[in-house]
Nucleic acid binder design. Structure first.
Lengths: 335, 335
DNA sequence: TTGTAAGCGTTATCAT
DNA sequence: ATGATAACGCTTACAA
C-alpha cells in the first residue's frame, strides 16, 4: 500500500538507517550507497511521511493561524503575508476562523495543540485570560498579529493604532477641517477601537478643537453596514461637519455609499478618511484617502518572529510597523 | 515534559490500553475505572497527541486547500464556506497559495501529501496533466472547486459558467440593450474564461445580435486594473455600445472607476454587469448588478463532497450550484 | 474488565 | 560506512 523507508531499503539492498541518512543528507555513507538509495527512491516514487517524522523530531513544520470575523480583506492580506514566508520555510499553515466566539476559539486552539503545531499566530482579536492561560499551559510559541495583551509578554506585531489615528485626524485638520466626525469601531476593542478613538481625540485636543461626543459614533463590527448607518446619524445631527474619520475602509466605504444615497457630494460637502488601505479603498468612488497599514508585511513579520521563536533564536517582543497616509480622492483640501 | 497517556495510566493506576479505551469511548471498562481515568486526565491536563494517533489510524483529520492567485474576495468566501464545515466535522484545513505557478503548486501538493492530509480541495485553477498524475499517484480524495478537468473523473463543484454568462447577457438584452461589450478574462482559462465568453456569444446569437470581435476585450487576471483598461478601449472604439458584461466583479468595478474618470455616467450612458457577487459589488458606486455565484456554499459543498469521499461513502461526481442575478444599480432598463 | 504487546514510519543511538 | 534496534505516543489485537 503505502511505500515506506523499508521498501526503499529493501530495494536498495541496505538498511533503513542508511536510507534515512541519505534522505536527510547526514553523511556517513558511500557515494555508491547514495546512488543506489536515490535510485530506489525514484523508482518506487517514495515520499517520506511527515507524520512519522514529527513523532521523533517533535516538530511538525506547521503553524496555526486563528482569525476572528474581521474584514475579508484584512484576513486575505494577512494570510497572504503569512503564507509567503511559511512557504519559503517549508512550513504549512492551518487556518481557523473563530468569529470572536471564545468557545470556538478554545476549540480551535485545542485542535491546533492536538496536532502539535510548532507555533500559533493569533490575529486581531481581543485576548482574554482563558486564552493566555491555555497558551501558557501548552507552551507553544505564539505571536499576536494586530493585537496584544497587557497581561502577557507574548510578542506582537502591529502598527501603533493610536499614532495612526492621530496622524489620520491631524491630516484632516492640516487640510483645513475643524469639525471632524468619527465613525469608530467598538470602543471596547483594545486595538482597533479604543486606541484609534483616542488618537482621534488627541489630535483634536492638540489642535485646540473641541471633542464633542455627538461627533462620534460607534459601530460594532467595523463593517460596511455600520459605516452606512453611522454616517447618516452623523450627518443628521452635525450640519457643520466637513470631514469624517472612519476606523476602517469598510466603514468608510459604507459612509460613501450612504452619502451617495443622500445626495451628499464626497469630498466637496464632506470628506472621508478611511483606515487600512485594503483594495476596497481603491474600488470606492471617490477612491478613499486612507491611513495605510502594511498588512501583508504585518503578516510576514509575524511569521518571521514566530519562526525565530520556534528555532530558539532571539526575537523581539514587539514590532511596530510604520503606517502612512495614502492620498486619493475622498478628502478635500480646503486651505 | 509532555504529558502522555502513560502518565495518565500511572496516575489512574491502570494500563494505557484502558486509558485509551475510556478516552475513545470504546467501552469495556468499569465505571469506576472510567472515573479514575478521567480524574487523572483532568488533574494532569492531558491532551492527546493527534500525530501519534494519526500514525495508527492512518487519518489526520486535516484537508489541504490550494488557491491560485484569484480575487481576494473569492478566496475569502470559499475559505469561509470550507472552514465552516470542516470545523463542524473536527477537521483542520491547511491552505496554500500557488499563484498559478506549477512548481509552486507541485511543491504545495507534495507538502500536503507528506503531511498525509485526508483530502485536497483544488480551487479555481487550470488542471494540468502533471497535477492529475500526482493525484493519481498519491491516491488521496480530491475535489475541484470552481474548476474541472475533462481528462479526469475527479468530482467538482461549480456553477455552470456558460449558462451563467448566457443569463447575464440575456438579462442585458431583455432590458433593452443590443450593443453589448464584454470584458472577458483570459479566454484560455477553461472555467472563468472560455465558457463565460461563449455564454455571452450564445446569448447574442440567440437574440440575433451580431457578435463583433471589437466588442470583446480580454483581461488576463480578472482584476480591477484589467477592468479599467479594457473599459477605456471598449468605449473608445464602440460609440454605440450601451452595456458591458464583465467576467468578474473586480473587472466590473474597474470599469466603473474608469467611467468616472472619463465622465461617463453609469448606468445612464453605459450599463455594467458584473460576475460573482462578492462584497465589491456592494461597495462599487453605483452598486453592481451582477451574476451571483453562491460562493460560500460552493466552498461548503466541496468539503461535504470531499468528506463523503474520505469516509468511503457514495458521492456525486459533479455538483452544479444554481446561479442568480442580483439586481442593483449598474444596469439601466431602457425598455 | 483489564493488561501486555505489537505495531505505525520515521530518526537516532549504539555497536560493529 | 553500515546495520540493529530502541524510541516517539498512540491504537488495537490478543491474552488473561
Amino acid at each position: 500500500m503505502m511505500i515506506t523507508i523499508r521498501d526503499v531499503a529493501e530495494k536498495a539492498q541496505t538498511s533503513i538507517a542508511t536510507v534515512s541518512r541519505v534522505l536527510n543528507n547526514l553523511g556517513g555513507y558511500s557515494e555508491q550507497k547514495k546512488i543506489e538509495v536515490l535510485k530506489a527512491v525514484d523508482e518506487l516514487g517514495y515520499e517520506s511521511n511527515a507524520i512519522a517524522r514529527s513523532m521523533i523530531v517533535k516538530k511538525t513544520n506547521t503553524i496555526g493561524v486563528v482569525f476572528p470575523n474581521i474584514s475579508s480583506m484584512l484576513t486575505y492580506e494577512f494570510l497572504n503575508g503569512i503564507e509567503d514566508v511559511t512557504y519559503k520555510n517549508n512550513f504549512n499553515v492551518i487556518v481557523s476562523y473563530t468569529y470572536s466566539q471564545p468557545e470556538r476559539m478554545m476549540k480551535a486552539l485545542r485542535m491546533l495543540y492536538e496536532k502539535r503545531v510548532d507555533g500559533i499566530i493569533f490575529t486581531s482579536d481581543v485576548v482574554n485570560d482563558e486564552y493566555l492561560k491555555y497558551f501558557e499551559k501548552i507552551d507553544i510559541p505564539v505571536v499576536f498579529l494586530s493585537t496584544k495583551s497587557d497581561n502577557s509578554s507574548i510578542p506582537y506585531v502591529k502598527v501603533n493604532d493610536f499614532n495612526a489615528a492621530y496622524d489620520a485626524t491631524e491630516y484632516l485638520i492640516r487640510n483645513g477641517h475643524n469639525t471632524i466626525g468619527m465613525i469608530s469601531g467598538n470602543p471596547e476593542d483594545p486595538i482597533a477601537g479604543f486606541p484609534r478613538l483616542e488618537g482621534y481625540k488627541s489630535a483634536l485636543k492638540k489642535a485646540n478643537l473641541p471633542i464633542e461626543e455627538n461627533l462620534i459614533r460607534y459601530g460594532y463590527d467595523f463593517n460596511f453596514e455600520d459605516g452606512k448607518n453611522k454616517f447618516r446619524e452623523l450627518v443628521d445631527t452635525n450640519p457643520d461637519m466637513t470631514a469624517i474619520f472612519a476606523a476602517s475602509d469598510e466603514m468608510a466605504s459604507g459612509a460613501i455609499t450612504a452619502a451617495h444615497q443622500m445626495d451628499i457630494e464626497i469630498p466637496n460637502q464632506i470628506s472621508i478618511m478611511g483606515f487600512d488601505n485594503t483594495m476596497i479603498a481603491e474600488i470606492a468612488y471617490p477612491a478613499l484617502t486612507t491611513l495605510a497599514q502594511p498588512l501583508r508585511k504585518m503578516g510576514s513579520e509575524a511569521v518571521k518572529l514566530l519562526l525565530k521563536n520556534i528555532d530558539g533564536e532571539k526575537f523581539e517582543n514587539e514590532v511596530i510597523l510604520p503606517h502612512s497616509i495614502k492620498e486619493r480622492q475622498s478628502v478635500k483640501k480646503i486651505n
